[in-house]
Amino acid sequence: MARSAPAAIGLLLTISATGVAQAPPSLEEVMTSFAAYMSAYAQDYAATIASEHYTQFAGRSRTILDSDFGTVRLPGSPWLGLRDVVRVNGAPVADREARLEELFTNASAAAGLNAQAAVRANRIVDESTRYNIGTVGRTINNPALVLELLDPGRHAAFRFSKDGEDTVAGIRTWRIAFVEQGSPTVISGADDRDLPATGHIWVDPASGRLVRAEVVIRFPFLNRPTKMGLGTVIITFKDVPEFHMWLPDTMIERYDELPGRRLQDGQATYTNYRRFRVESQENVDLPALPR
């Protein structure tokens, strides 16, 4: 009889624990979790390289880019998505070396790139954009957009509101709408005009984890000021168990001339994630051991 008492207490505790309905978190609480998640995420994600398979459509044209893709933050600059194109429509890019891994290995990316590496990083960006097809020039067509736009340091310049709930990648998420209100905006036009971003993020309210992000911008055409365009970029994330992280899974982009004329679009998938190691070599003068 005496031994049954703890079991009964245990049972009561279990019932009690499951019987109390937890109050749903507030938007402020979810956004605080999200900000903490994004802060930690930015550092860990910056140490990865993925294989990107990217198909672009523009009218009747189509191009397929296979690239190494990594993300870095230059000192005093925004997050930068580095697309080092390996093959174009299946044909290897001539005179190409494994530049991205070399760049990341030789530079302390966690603390920011050194000046020499920054020059090389910008060269990789410039070279990769020449493979883009379509009339809308852009550098927002990669997952680094999300890191920059949703950086916790920028949240004060955005208005967030809960817009509903969706199940995404098997997780019950909050669909949170956002509107960028500050200036200068993260995304700008070719004439340096502010292009405020709107869109949605899908966040696991329990952990603050970002599962999906949709960024929408409206932009004018330089040569036709009365016409407006609509650009949409969607990034989805997937669990990569060996990294203990949710990493970009797909990127979808589309650019329309309103109303309803598709200019170009594309979709990319990210696989074969690998983590590069930043190794430092230090010479330390150890005191002589006492004899």
């Binding site: 189509r62 969706d166 199940t167 995404v168 669909r175 949605h200 899908w202 949709e214 929408v216 609509l230 949409t232 969607i234 989805t236 979808i252 589309r254 329309d256 109303p259 309803g260 004329r261 598709r262 679009d265």
Partner: peptide, 26 residues
């Protein structure tokens, strides 16, 4: 490649559906 003019990603957002439909109608 086989001829689908557009696609709508899930979960289906109103804006994305509208864009795809506008394109289909055009």
């Amino acid at each position: 490649k086989l001829g689908a003019v557009d696609f709508v990603p899930k979960p289906i957002g109103r804006e994305m559906l509208h864009q795809a439909l506008e394109r289909a109608l055009a």
